[in-house]
Design a protein around this nucleic acid. Sequence first.
DNA 1: AATGAATGAGAATTCATTCAT
DNA 2: CATGAATGAATTCTCATTCAT
Lengths: 209, 209, 209, 209
Amino acid sequence: MKLRDKEATRQKILEAAIDVFSDKGYNNALVDDIAKVSATSKGAFYFHFPSKKAIFEALIKTLMQRLIEDVEEAIESRHGALTKIEGALDTVLTILSRHENATRLLFVEANGLGKSFDQLIYTAHAEFIGLIAKHLQAAIDDGSIHSIPVELTASAWLGAIHEVVLMALLSPEKKRLDALKQPLCELLIQSLPRKAQSVATIEASIEEN
Amino acid sequence: MKLRDKEATRQKILEAAIDVFSDKGYNNALVDDIAKVSATSKGAFYFHFPSKKAIFEALIKTLMQRLIEDVEEAIESRHGALTKIEGALDTVLTILSRHENATRLLFVEANGLGKSFDQLIYTAHAEFIGLIAKHLQAAIDDGSIHSIPVELTASAWLGAIHEVVLMALLSPEKKRLDALKQPLCELLIQSLPRKAQSVATIEASIEEN
Amino acid sequence: MKLRDKEATRQKILEAAIDVFSDKGYNNALVDDIAKVSATSKGAFYFHFPSKKAIFEALIKTLMQRLIEDVEEAIESRHGALTKIEGALDTVLTILSRHENATRLLFVEANGLGKSFDQLIYTAHAEFIGLIAKHLQAAIDDGSIHSIPVELTASAWLGAIHEVVLMALLSPEKKRLDALKQPLCELLIQSLPRKAQSVATIEASIEEN
Amino acid sequence: MKLRDKEATRQKILEAAIDVFSDKGYNNALVDDIAKVSATSKGAFYFHFPSKKAIFEALIKTLMQRLIEDVEEAIESRHGALTKIEGALDTVLTILSRHENATRLLFVEANGLGKSFDQLIYTAHAEFIGLIAKHLQAAIDDGSIHSIPVELTASAWLGAIHEVVLMALLSPEKKRLDALKQPLCELLIQSLPRKAQSVATIEASIEEN
DNA sequence: AATGAATGAGAATTCATTCAT
DNA sequence: CATGAATGAATTCTCATTCAT
């Protein structure tokens, strides 16, 4: 029971931190705010996390890892390189649109924190890019698409997703993220140089989505 | 003469601000730092700018506007919708790789500042997206490419540029930005659904670059 | 058996407290440190002692009392006022050099704690001074030495011991305390205005040490 | 005028610091207190001194240095090794009794601050001991007194002074320091093994004081 | 009796901004 | 116009003490 309670407090703090950071940004978020929102205390915060910076980093890493895990899981159940890619995109966008605060944390607040955070951001992005690149490479290898620079393409895709999500979050009208999922997914998939014979199949798979 | 001096001080401060903000990020940059780097004083700073936030906003707006102006100028001298688009991409990437500090300011530090900066970021991005979109639309209108969702594509392009530039800036090896210009430009152009007859022309124009 | 355990815990805490206080000083010593070093817990600490200040005071008083008891015991077995004094000095210095941590606690850390500790320090010193003074008076009374202001001399002696010990503890080379015992003892004894006839006796007694 | 004002503020802060530190001890003294007492501000404090620890160290060093300078000056005008020693003692005790707060700072609060202050204390004491030792050696060299271990004696003297002053400061009756000057001075001087012929002279000089 | 998670009143330090010169 | 000393609200982190288990 004790252990449960300790872990519960930790979770309450982590969740409050997501909300507070995504609401105010890293620098304007007060440890006091997190304590208040989590309905615990400053002492509890510092009992569970060594510093404000540490919880932020833990949060970014955890969220990014969870996102990647979810995507890989979704991919596993699909067959065919292109289908997997499509599934990945779909999953990412679905998750992002479901957890707006975490998304904002990852895609907005995790920037501009000065060079001491550069490594963190770089690693998170690199991991994500690696994931996309791996599956693009698979699509090339199995002959679904012509050869392309996979790393660069993966970066571009991440950037595209990032920007679209960002603009949706920042837009005065607060566009719903999920409305953008389908068009963006199509756009990216169609930007791939598919080999002739597979076109029909792909488009079919998109339709049926 | 006096006027010159006054304006000179203002410029020194603005340039120092670019360096300091891009080096430390908005929040970690001190007004003291800017005063020191500009070889003026805090008093001078507050004579020329009402606040730290104000100079930052001024900086973002100015830099973005200058970038857009440069791009539009470069475009004007080119003919043909697709050539214009290509020219725009080329110009943007050239400018960005030449002014690394300003780029970092625009693409890295201008994020995560909390909601009070959302409007600023949104406007800057929207303007840029509008510029790209305008020319994509022109390419559709003159029959160079099939119809595409121009706003979304423009967002995706900006995102792609952003991400590639960001990763180059953050990468431990500090990749030179200019090496990425050509491949990224190609990637984006080739993602457009060109109408058959124009393919040769485009590829030629890329080659001659 | 239970009682033994309880008392054992208390002792573990007290001994840990000596180490921690002498290592870090009163203010920089954490109750957490004491709990950790004693291999018990904060709860145990507060079960046995009402506060951090209380355990510190208890420690000072206990150590001082033990020191005085040891000295008085050593004195009892000697005969002749001067011999007793000499024995006292010898005993004090021996004990102090054997328990460096406790010595540091008593002679270094027990200072500078602000006025709320003044009384504690004053009492400890006064007791010690009283002990020395008592035997100096005895030496005067039995005609071993000429009359001197015993209180003042006793203060001066305590100060001399304190300073020599302190400098030994603080010196970069960490002088061994025991090397200083003999010379300091001599110095103090010889500073007494001995009556002519007793000189030989005294010096003899010093030699044989 | 500006320079004067800046320096004036610095001085106000330093003087306030002496009062506050000697009143509450290093750890219980708040930077806020110093700001308040100095009638300046926390900002001014941190403009002039990098940290609380730094001002404390500066204070100890300055006070100790000033004390030593005053003593050396007083000594210079006297002739004869023993007379100089006596003069030094007299001067020290006079100064200490005149500046009770500074004395308390030096002799009470500057202890027990943990090992990070050890070096500071050691240096201060060593300097003072060196000064006394130098003149004791001179007295030996010119034949005024028999040979003695000068370093040890100097330590003992500093300790004696320290203790007597301390007890005066801590005693409930708040003994006036100046009443102790004369007896302590005599006690120390008489503890020196004067060579026969000089006794009369010395005692004369003590009397006339 | 003992444990250690939780509390919250501080305390040092920072830094945007002001203002006298 | 420029300077830089001064201000003080704000913020992170500390740690003695409490208390549920």
